[in-house]
Design a protein around this nucleic acid. Structure first.
Length: 599
DNA sequence: GCCGTTTTCGGCCCGACTGTTTTCAGTCG
């Protein structure tokens, strides 16, 4: 039923409408309007259906009176009369063909018509068969080459990979950058696109280099040791396939014009569109080559000058999503975003302490983890293993385990050999059971400095029940953190359904913190909810959820999520010193400054 | 179809690439 339609499915429907309108040669701005509505809906983290229930559809930018009316009909009746009419005389198979790179609406329509492709289920297979039989090149407007391109496109589609997780793409790009930088001094190399903007998932890796000798750089690039295949090595650009199957593009530009190139290919698309609208009003025209003023092209060494020429301060790439950053930059009011160096501790870490949980244990000892945290310059580390399993233990057994962990941590904290500028905080990640109760006995809290409450089961409750469950789970005064709050796993599991306004106002009122979990397939809160939490004044904490010692390095990806959500140092709890945190948690024991006196 | 510290009407981003064409339409980022 349409009432169960996800945002993604609604976005797909609107894209099909846009494609259909294009085939019919309708006004291109109307088509663009449907596409814009589709992409905003796709990026919205609140369910469109619940916004509709609250009569708030038009609060979404790109949804006006008409599309709101159509969506209303969709939710009420399961279909939209106007859409059905548009689709009526079109072959349904054409929408499948749009997945093939190089095939747009008009091509898809023509192919379906000429090849009598109707059924979406086997549309691509039918197309492939026709291409193999040489039927496509005979169609007017197609030729030998386009038939070959279609076969290649189908092959790519069938082999397509899911998008890469940010950390994976980031590390690969850094490896190539390090390789290219070797023996070259002062070379400017940057990732482009969603990678430079630090989106949670990345399609292809694109890099740019500022150079007067593009040939030398490209020659070196195509000798990168991990190359599987060189697709093209031209005068100024090159494309290779990495041994892992990923495509990597390199663009070069002379240094004096590099600023515009970098800006252009960093995007996002919506950011650039908005920027060009600003430019037009100033009588300017933007492109990857620079800014045209009365037909004359100006070059830019650096992005900073480029933005300045448009009357605004430089905008950090993470903010370039057209969420108000351009207006803020015009007024010189961009937030001072949090940085990695602001972080003073990590409060969600799993050690190998035998906690006897039904969930996974960490791989490394408390001592090793504490050493690593100190190497990172942290003042504190919060050990928060999963709670001992509820069904396998009696209450007394759970209390005994928690007591043993408390004693171990106390011993480490008060041992004479420990560095005095560092503290271990005794935490626990506790399941919020489906009824909203927490999975340890009340007395167990006496052993804890604080607790993280998280959902690890029954993900499919409706919004009202799930929200009630979470709010109940956060009530206990020792529970300060709501762990990986949406429960999403990128490419694997959708977020569960929560009423975020209620969660935000509860957290604000009761001084609870939302976690930004930096684990690669979580990155949860997602950036869009961080943005809303910041606006609502809710505090957050960036944790790595490490299960091995190396994973403490993942903090940078949590930072990137926070930055994409406009978070400053003040929005993030673990930028505080140990003494400030200890005060918030009512921890007994010596403050660090006094202990430091002994050093 | 959307949107508004230039507008409730009249605008709406830009350029490259490609293949099939004799001047351009479609697609992409």
């Amino acid at each position: 039923m349409s009432h169960e339609m996800s945002n993604k499915e609604i976005a797909d429907l609107l894209r099909r409408v846009a494609a259909a309108l294009e085939v019919k040669g309708k006004n291109s701005f109307k088509i663009a309007a449907y596409e814009k509505a589709a992409s905003t809906i796709e990026q919205t983290d609140v369910e469109i259906k619940s916004l509709w229930q609250e009569n708030r559809l038009q609060e979404i930018s790109g949804i006006g009176i008409n599309i709101a009316k159509h969506l209303n009909e969709l939710f009420e009746k399961g279909e939209v009369n106007y859409f059905e009419k548009i689709f009526q005389d079109l072959p349904q198979g054409m929408f499948e063909l749009l997945n093939i790179s190089g095939i747009g609406p008009k091509t898809a329509y023509k192919l379906c018509l000429k090849l009598k492709i109707e059924n979406p289920k086997n549309a691509i297979d039918q197309l492939e068969e026709a291409a193999k039989k040489g039927k496509i090149k005979k169609i007017e407007g197609f030729g030998e080459q386009s038939e070959k391109d279609i076969l290649e496109g189908i092959k790519q589609y069938k082999n397509r990979d899911e998008r890469m997780l940010l950390p994976f793409a980031w590390e690969l790009s850094q490896k190539i950058i390090n390789y290219l930088e070797k023996d070259e001094k002062n070379l400017r190399i940057d990732p482009l696109g969603s990678l430079r903007r630090m989106s949670s998932t990345i399609g292809d890796i694109d890099l740019a280099v500022a150079t007067d000798k593009p040939q030398e750089i490209i020659k070196k690039f195509i000798k990168f040791p991990e190359i599987k295949e060189i697709i093209v090595a031209g005068k100024n650009t090159a494309r290779i396939i990495h041994q892992n199957g990923r495509q990597i593009d390199l663009k070069t530009m002379k240094p004096e014009a590099y600023g515009a190139l970098l800006q252009h290919f960093t995007g996002s698309k919506q950011h650039n569109i908005h920027l060009r609208e600003v430019a037009i009003k100033k009588g300017l025209s933007l492109s990857e080559y620079g800014i045209k003023r009365q037909g004359k092209l100006e070059n830019f060494h650096f992005e900073k000058e480029f933005y300045k020429a448009l009357g605004m301060e430089w905008i950090p790439p993470e903010l370039r999503e057209d969420k108000g950053e351009i207006e803020a930059a015009q007024k010189n009011k961009l937030p001072k975003l949090i940085e990695l160096k602001d972080i003073r501790g990590d409060l969600h870490i799993h050690s190998d302490f035998p906690i006897e949980s039904s969930h996974d244990l960490g791989a490394d000892s408390i001592e090793i983890l504490a050493k690593k945290a100190q190497d990172l310059g942290y003042e504190y580390l919060g050990l928060s293993e999963h709670n001992p399993s509820f069904s396998q233990h009696s209450s007394q057994q759970i209390l005994d385990i928690l007591k043993r962990k408390r004693e171990k941590i106390d011993k480490l904290n008060y041992s004479r050999t420990r560095k005095l500028s560092f503290s271990i905080i005794n935490s626990l990640e506790i399941d919020i059971k489906p009824d909203g109760n927490l999975a340890i006995p009340e007395k167990g809290f006496d052993f804890l400095d604080l607790a993280i409450a998280s959902i690890h089961s029954s993900f499919k409750m409706n919004q009202k029940e799930m929200t009630k469950r979470v709010l109940h789970g956060l009530v206990h005064p020792k529970v300060k953190i709501f762990g990986h709050p949406t429960g999403r796993k990128l490419g694997e599991r959708e977020p569960y359904n929560l009423n975020w306004e209620q969660i935000f106002s509860f957290c604000l009122k009761n001084n609870k913190w939302l976690e930004i979990n930096a684990f690669p397939n979580r990155l949860d809160l997602p950036d869009s909810l961080v943005y809303k939490a910041v606006k609502a004044g809710v505090k957050m904490i960036i944790d790595t959820d490490s299960h091995t010692v190396d994973q403490l390095n993942l903090m940078i990806y949590g930072i990137s999520v926070a930055r994409r959500g406009w978070a400053t140092k003040n929005d993030i709890i673990n930028t505080m010193s140990y003494n400030q945190i200890a005060k918030l948690l009512n921890l007994k024991g010596l403050p660090l400054s006094k202990m430091k006196g002994g050093e």
